[in-house]
Amino acid sequence: MGGAQRPPQRRLGQWFGVLPFFVFSSLFLIGPTLILAYRSFEAPQGGLTLDNYRQLTSELVLNAYGMSVRISLTTALVGGLFGFLLAWAVSMGGLPRPFRSITTTFSGVASNFAGVPLAAAFIFTLGRIGLVTALFKVFGIDLYETGFSLYSFLGLSLVYLYFQIPLMVLVVLPALDGLKRDWREAAENLGATPGQYWRYVALPVLLPSILGTMILLFGNSFGAHATAYALTGGLFTLGTLLIGQQISGDVLHNPGLGYAVAMGMVMIMALSILIYSLLQRRSERWLG
């Protein structure tokens, strides 16, 4: 090896190892997306148009997107906050050592415990017959009388937090570990109070990671379908559910609009993943 010239068939052979990957990805990831992208520009009578994207502002679509954004923002912020607090508590808050491994293992489980079983678990907890609902009744409070419903913005957000918080924990923990003890001591040595250390050093250093992960959480909830479907039977107003309804029965009465809705979703996801990886890169440079 290392010779200046390589025989040509050898160079082709180089590609052989990665060829299956590219073919497979094209067939099952890129192809399906591209066809949606193409169709989203197709007019009902044929020809290319931007009309479908213009119609994204129709009430049905806006409501669905709006609910998705609301739930995603809420669960990203709340999940990010509680996830960060939990990660902080088990890494530097002085809890006994085993709590950390319990928390990471459980977070691995809970972040993957989405979909039907999660929906079922919450129905048994906060549904009309749920255990917690029943407990509240014992204290004289009828949750569903007060306007709460598991099949609402608030309910769905509560359910989503079950996989949002653990994801935050898993991504932020390494960043917290990256905070060097020397930084804290250097700050203290220079006269900073613990509060000043957090304000000027620790939080700014963690900020890209925290923000990035929250954006990741946003995307994570924005694209979630199974849990919402299992909980509401697919009839709730939500971006992913709207696409599902469109697949089963063209509820938008316009196939082209359906494709545009799907592509809009992909773009929002792509944007959030992009921002996440940019912020993560900065964070790694600092915490490396």
Binding site: D182, W183, N189, A192, V201, P204, L287
Partner: peptide
């Protein structure tokens, strides 16, 4: 430590990466 007015240089430098 923050009341002693002692300057310290660490083995790892411990420079704040965000500044």
């Amino acid at each position: 430590p923050n009341e002693r007015n002692i300057g310290m240089v660490f083995q790892s430098y411990a420079l704040f990466p965000n500044m």
